[in-house]
Design a binder for these strands. Structure first.
Lengths: 213, 213, 213, 213
DNA sequence: TATGAATGAGTGTTCATTCAT
DNA sequence: TATGAATGAACACTCATTCAT
């Protein structure tokens, strides 16, 4: 009986994957859900379908996730983590090399990561927000902000001795600005996403924003 | 559902508001839907509930809207129109007065308009996108872009003889950037939204972006 | 209703009766539907009612049938199969015995099979045709034609060396003629159905039709 | 506000045109319903649609028919009457002319009349029966029987001095047999309906059935 | 632990009919 | 008499979740 329950923190992951098999099952479920989201859209996402696609039974699915929403939440969490990891890695990698603007590489990585699984990403976030879990939007943006902050510092350090000192508000604004621009390009399925000019302008946005000119 | 759903002539028979009463009914329905969205969240939005809240019968609701989605679409459309109208008006009003930066006023108006009915706005757009109507994201952004374009032109004309000439990509980037920043602030229920610093930074974002410096 | 009704994978997921329990459930559903049809009439036939009568939940019903119409179709199919089986068996049984006219026995069997579940039969077929599935009228008649053909051959073989050679048109005409007469008697609830004279005249109809006289 | 006046004799003269108008309205409603049935099928037949198609309001429709079913009943009645009239006329017309088999002409007329508005006919009858009004099936068949009887008499009189004397059962059987064959051809949308061989075989059916051979 | 049949509240939508104007 | 907006019961169908095996 599909009663609506309040979410509890304990609900998020019912079983701790002590065994490898359990971890695998979780992975399979997440994969299946993501695949459905990407290929068939959000309205085709239901637990029976996920279980079927995952090659398990619904019962088993409910052994690992307390409810449908928990699956979406986990997907969203992983998308956020993936973004962060991807971009941070890029920045870390090039921080030695003074010949390349880290902002450019960061943005390039952001664009690339947003292009992947666009529908999954959107669906997961929308589902979460639809349920009123605004905290997640925040968590996601936080990742972005962290990244941007990193970029700002690198830039500052490497290129502009004369840059504005980043405040919290500045980081908030520029990170959400970039995220907004890239997400719009993805959501609107704009062909602009492929052009070098788009990257160029985003870089310009960051550069000019921090420049003390 | 309805099993086969051929199109019937009745599908196109939805009443057009020729009479005042009809127009009122539409308004009442939209109000009710918005209210539910704002107070109870998207998952509480169903046609029976809307009708009940609107003080009419479901049947009547379906005389004015062909289906539930159409209601969301109309809400979204109106939000977009409201944004555009609000900002354009501000810009038009101050275009004579050279003492005020139109970009600042535009941004101020945007922030103000986004603050209103935040949940309604989000819910309507999310509902639409969840249904795969990406076009609306585009339509919405277009409004933003138009606004930004207007701001850019004003700015250019009044402040910076020496500004960069806005291209399509530039307008895309800056409009989505601003939209993203403001929306994030709204969605994350960030207290930053109330601070003058936030406005300040957004203005700086636009100004520096267009500046040829 | 369901608004757009794209096909989903779940549309093809209807359980096939691999297990005995499943087969039983199907039977129970069909029984319940037939009973409602017979006792309460076609307009009382709705899925909730069927499920209730069958002692299962609507959900379960939909595990076995993709939609309401499918139930009617299955009932109709079984009625057709029942007719065919009944008559063919009779004909086969007597084909050794030259003392009895196979046409007479065939007609007798047809009358008997039509008398059973008259309302169910009619309702099922009408429901199907109402939905534009003319093919089923055809399928049903085909069974009749097959039967008649069999009768004709038997007759030919056993009684009338001198019979007209049956053509497609002839088989069409005589099979539908007999079906029409019997069905009318059933539908009109005519007491004629019980009289030996009725059988006599039907036999005469077939006999004289094929006779080369 | 019109005051109450005494009736004057001149007031009654208006009645005729008013009645004429009423009769017209009924006709228009029936036409509209038949058209919908034929072109869009039974499931598209609803009172609002009928009224719309008829160019009147639903309210007006309910001024002339107590409910939807009454419309179907009236259509069915008229179809029956039409059949009878068409065939009887043919028979009457040729009864002087000894050179033509009246059975053939009768059957030809029957086929022709069944071809017209096939969907309307079926839908009307099915709707009636679905509601349990079996009496109408009877009424319809009665018309057929009357016709056949007439044909039999004509035939008898003109062609076969040596024919079997038609009994009630015989007339029942042969009339329903012919009706069944023609209806099947119509319902199954069989191309056989167009062939001369079909008519030929029906004539043969009648002829051989009555022949004392 | 896994299974998957069963559940049933819930949802979008239709349409015959009424009645105030 | 005509209108047509309003009604609301009814219905087909979905899907998150449970639990006996």
């Amino acid at each position: 009986m599909p009663l609506k329950r309040k979410l509890r923190s304990s609900d998020f992951k019912r079983r701790t994957p002590v065994q490898q098999r359990a971890a695998d099952t979780i992975e399979v479920i997440l994969q299946a859900a993501a695949q459905i989201l990407q290929k068939e859209g959000r309205s085709a996402l239901n637990t029976n379908h996920i279980a079927e696609r995952a090659g398990i039974s619904v019962g088993t699915l409910y052994q690992y996730f307390p409810n449908k929403q928990a699956i979406l939440i986990e997907i969203a969490r992983r998308e956020i983590a993936r973004d962060r990891a991807a971009v941070m890695k890029v920045i870390a990698d090039v921080s030695q090399d003074t010949s390349i603007d880290p902002a450019r590489l960061g943005i390039r990585a952001l664009i690339a990561s947003q292009k992947k699984q666009s529908k999954v990403r959107r669906a997961a976030f929308e589902a979460l927000m639809a349920e009123g879990i605004a905290q997640f939007a925040s968590e996601s943006s936080h990742a972005f902000q962290e990244i941007t902050s990193q970029m700002a510092i690198s830039r500052d350090h490497l290129f502009l001795k004369n840059a504005r000192q980043p405040t919290t508000t500045m980081l908030f604004v520029i990170s959400r600005a970039i995220a907004g621009a890239i997400r719009s390009a993805v959501i609107e399925e704009s062909s602009i996403l492929q052009t070098p000019e788009f990257e160029e302008e985003l870089v310009h946005l960051v550069r000019s924003y921090f420049a003390k000119c």
